[in-house]
Design a protein around this nucleic acid. Structure first.
Length: 851
RNA sequence: GCCGGGAUGGCGGAAUUGGUAGACGCGCGGGACUCAAAAUCCCGUGUCCUCAAAGGAUGUGUGGGUUCGAGUCCCACUCCCGGCACCA
């Protein structure tokens, strides 16, 4: 390492005096520093060094789409890089990797349309995007790049699947699943939005298929625990809601004139004295046996009708309650009431027990249903207004609050107390048991698509379902496959005889491979674990071109790809300290990654339970207030702007638009402001040097140090830039000493890295502006003494209205300030001849005289 | 329907959490430089009254309230954005 630092300073010796061009040549200078940074290996993280505290700063990796990187990416990655550079300058050993989430539907859909093989288009997109990312000028350590469609990577995705499988956390079962007729694949619940396929917008239908699932439900309770995480409250509550933990009770009702029973789930057993009917989901297995002969035809018709509806059709029918009587009655043991059992599609099979007990007086849906079918409505909770009369309109349906009535031993209680009392009673009597239900479903991970990670399972006639042995991984995705959808549920891989035919790992007899691939979210659920050790495990293959395969720093030993991630590096670098990405992943990627981390913890591979300690969501950059998309034709490409103004200006402009977490609407006019700003700093530094700073100038420099650091820490880049502009504006008038100019350049460095590196060199600073000698930090120290004001402006108010201003010394006493204030001409006009009722003095701020 | 977040000049947005509303930037107006234009620099820029200045009135979605003082706190409402949505 020592050798290296000496070559560094030689290669880029500070230029003390040289004539600078009148104008700042952004494109030229940026390319120069990108080259030097790379040659010097400035951003190659010292993975084993303990000299500084580690900081793992991660941004969600991009999908290599044909649209390339748009301004949204630049916003996101630019902001992340600014933060990462700031942390580096604050003295951390920062690791900021980049990679590609390369499997997935879009590449495959593109392939179907254009005939270009997904492997080809993906590789092409990646190489273009790499170029774009380089021009961004971020601190990416490219030797640690991760590409999920690389067999060296997905080998371990498969290995992880096998670990889950061995633990019983991956299983195969027949279940009603979401099916997208356009993408010709099943989808996870998380990928269906309002009944529509998240990818292509087609209405999703339900199918009964045998599919692979991860048992994420087993982790529901632990996923509700966000202890120690600095995450946006909103994201946490979205996950909470998605998991949907509900405490309730399963109550069994006897069926009249039969030995059958029916079980309902309810969170509100307190209202059970008011239960007058029961509704069962159309898909429920008990429907047939509950249906009496004379009702069979009607029930059959109703179920057929419900089945034929798509998810959206069912949702559109929300207003209108439908249903049909089965002919059976369930007996309410509390009252002896015989409750008719109906079939209705407003009851969902996959929540609770698929059966609901109807309390029309205190549930609006039940009321609508009872109203339509003329079922009696009983009041068991007094109205808030004290009303105990009949409930004859939906407005009178009181769902919570109030006092129990007509409920024997519950009378006089509040619902919350009544709930637990009733649960105790039911459990004691033996016709029910407390249970916890979750909205969260197990994660459906199989996809009937080609461009994904193959599931490492083999089906053998005699041994059944057999996992591929670990030494045989990866199960390679064959290249020569007809990836066009077949119009049925068969996966494209099923057409490759070479792929399908294999031998059973157990008995050696001929067997068939699983032909489904994994959801891409499986690949991205652990990539953050791979980054620190990715080059460590990268196989060296001389047949592969490109520098990334052959460059290894001297202190890492070359290893073959023998683990998913290295124990030592993982212990050192994880969890991720700062994770930045879109809020749209709240209930998908961010939940899945937490699940994976917890499972790997339980399996003993890692010693932490949460992958991302701090999480920040960037806002969305829109164009004409609409999301940028190819179909709308409003995608703004960053390339032209970068070419014209340089990455620094472009990045800064995006960050200047507003708070990072809020995004903004793209307007290409405003960018000139940032271009002018950089130009101004350039002129300032190259032409407006003074020997000594004006005291006011020095004060502002130190105030700016405090402000910029404070703002960047909180991702308020917009106000950090504004503060730098203010500082520059004053310096432009007053001139700036070399030392202060160096401070200014340092403050600017995280935001405009290339420009600052150049100016740093010009000012005689030692390469690099992002580094500092051991005992120091590159980020300037704020000196409160130098920032302290000697004089402040007091605002003078009379009756709360501003009537004047006065410069006073900071340590002026209350009495002194007030007496001085009273001498101000304009103030006199308002207080003369009036009695002063109150005098308020806020030190260093204002005086308010009440007359 | 439920849960979040928001509404501030012509525009994007500031405001130390109750103490100068409109920082900073864009745009616009005026001026300087120039044969001219661009670029650059300087001045101005919420609205209204006033020739102008001084000064004043008014002003942070709407209506009320608390306070010496409210963009900020409380109550009621309107609209916009995001999430969930027949979840028992």
């Amino acid at each position: 390492m020592k050798k290296k630092s000496s070559t560094r300073s030689k290669a880029v010796a500070p230029r003390k005096s040289r004539t600078m061009p009148k104008k700042y040549q952004a494109p030229l200078i940026e390319k120069k520093w990108q080259r030097i940074w790379e040659e010097q290996g400035l951003f190659k993280t010292e993975m084993f060094s303990n000299k500084k505290q580690k900081y793992y700063c991660l941004v969600m990796f991009p999908y290599p789409s044909g649209d390339k990187l748009h301004v949204g990416h630049w916003y996101n990655y630019g902001g992340t890089d600014t933060f990462a550079r700031f942390m580096r300058m604050k003295g951390h050993n920062v690791f900021e990797p980049m990679g590609f989430d390369a499997f997935g539907l879009p590449a495959e859909n593109y392939a179907i349309k254009s005939g270009v093989h997904p492997a080809k288009s993906t590789a092409k997109n990646i190489s273009y995007m790499r170029k774009q990312l380089r021009s961004l000028g971020a601190m990416y350590d490219w030797e640690k790049e991760v590409v999920t469609c690389d067999p060296e990577y997905y080998k371990w995705t498969q290995w992880l699947f096998l670990q889950f499988y061995k633990k019983g956390l991956a299983y195969r079962t027949k279940a009603p699943v979401n099916w997208c007729p356009h993408c010709q694949t099943v989808l996870a619940n998380e990928q269906v939005q309002n009944g529509i396929c998240e990818r292509c917008g087609t209405a999703v239908t339900k199918k009964d298929l045998t599919q692979w699932f991860f048992k994420i439900r087993d982790y529901a309770d632990r996923l509700l625990d966000f202890k120690g995480l600095t995450w946006p409250e909103k994201t946490k509550s979205m996950q909470e809601h998605w998991i949907g933990r509900k405490e309730g009770i399963n109550i069994r009702y006897r069926i009249k004139d039969s030995d059958k029973e029916i079980t309902v789930f309810t969170t509100r057993p307190d209202t059970n004295f008011g239960a007058t009917f029961v509704v069962i989901a159309p898909e429920h297995p008990l429907v047939d046996s509950l249906t009496t002969m004379e009702n069979e035809a009607a029930v059959h018709d109703y179920i057929q009708d419900a089945k034929s509806k798509s998810e959206i059709e069912r949702m559109n029918d929300v207003r209108e309650k439908t249903g049909v009587f089965t002919g059976s009655y369930a007996i309410n043991d509390l009252t002896g009431y015989e409750m008719p059992v109906y079939v209705a599609d407003y009851v969902l099979m996959d929540f609770g027990t698929g059966v609901v007990v109807g309390v029309p007086g205190h549930d609006r849906r039940d009321f609508e249903f009872a109203n339509k079918f003329s079922i009696p409505i009983i009041r068991v909770i007094q109205g808030i207004d004290g009303n105990t009369g009949p409930i004859d309109s939906i407005d009178k349906v009181q769902e919570d609050d109030g006092i129990m009535v007509h409920s024997e031993f519950l009378n006089g209680l509040h619902p919350t107390e009544a709930i637990s009392k009733m649960m105790d009673y039911i459990e004691k009597k033996g016709f029910g048991k407390r249970v916890i239900n979750y909205r969260l479903k197990d994660w459906l991970l199989s996809r009937q698509r080609y461009w994904g990670c193959p599931i490492p399972i083999v089906y053998c006639k005699s041994c059944g379902e057999v996992p591929v042995s670990e030494k045989d991984l990866p199960v390679l995705l064959p290249e020569k496959v007809n990836y066009l959808p077949k119009g049925d549920e068969r996966s494209p891989l099923g057409t490759s005889k070479q792929f399908v035919h294999t031998t059973c790992p157990k008995c050696g007899e001929s067997a068939e491979r699983e032909v489904d691939t994994m959801d891409t979210f499986v690949c991205s659920s652990w990539y953050f674990l791979r980054y620190p050790s990715s080059d460590f495990f990268r196989e060296i293959d001389s047949s592969k071109k490109g520098s990334k395969q052959t460059h290894f720093s001297k202190n890492t030993h070359i290893s073959h790809n023998v683990h998913a991630f290295d124990q030592k590096l993982t212990k050192k670098w994880l969890p991720v300290d700062m994770y930045i990405g879109g809020a749209e992943h709240a209930c998908m990627h961010l939940l899945y990654a937490r699940f994976f981390t917890k499972v790997l913890h339980d399996l003993g591979y890692i010693d932490f339970e949460e992958p991302f300690t701090r999480l920040v969501h960037q806002g969305i950059i829109t164009k004409n207030s609409a999301k940028m998309s190819k179909s709308r034709g409003n995608v703004v490409s960053p390339d032209a702007f970068v070419k014209r103004y340089g990455s620094d200006v472009f990045r800064m402009y995006l960050l200047f638009m507003g708070p990072f977490t809020e995004g903004g609407d793209w307007d290409d006019r405003g960018i000139t402001g940032l271009a002018r700003f950089i130009e101004k700093v350039y002129t300032l530094i190259t032409q407006k040097k003074t020997d000594i700073d004006d005291p006011e100038m020095l004060r502002l420099i130190h105030k700016t140090i405090r402000k910029v650091g404070f703002d960047i820490e909180r991702f308020q880049f917009n106000t950090a830039i504004a503060a730098l502009m203010e500082c520059t504006n004053m310096a432009y008038k007053k001139g700036l000493s070399r030392d202060s100019a160096k401070f200014l350049v340092k403050l600017l460095a995280p935001l405009a890295p290339h420009f600052s590196e150049e100016m740093w060199g010009y000012l005689g600073g030692k390469f690099s502006v992002f580094d500092a000698p051991m005992s120091e930090t590159a980020w300037p120290q704020f000196d409160s003494a130098l920032a302290a004001e000697t004089e402040v402006e007091l605002v003078i108010q009379v009756n709360g209205k501003v009537r004047g201003r006065l410069m006073v010394s900071v340590d002026i006493s209350k009495e002194e300030a007030i007496s001085q204030v009273k001498e101000v001409e304009n103030v006199k006009r308002y207080i003369e001849g009036k009695t002063i009722r109150k005098e308020i003095y806020v030190p260093k701020k204002l005086v308010n005289i009440v007359v």
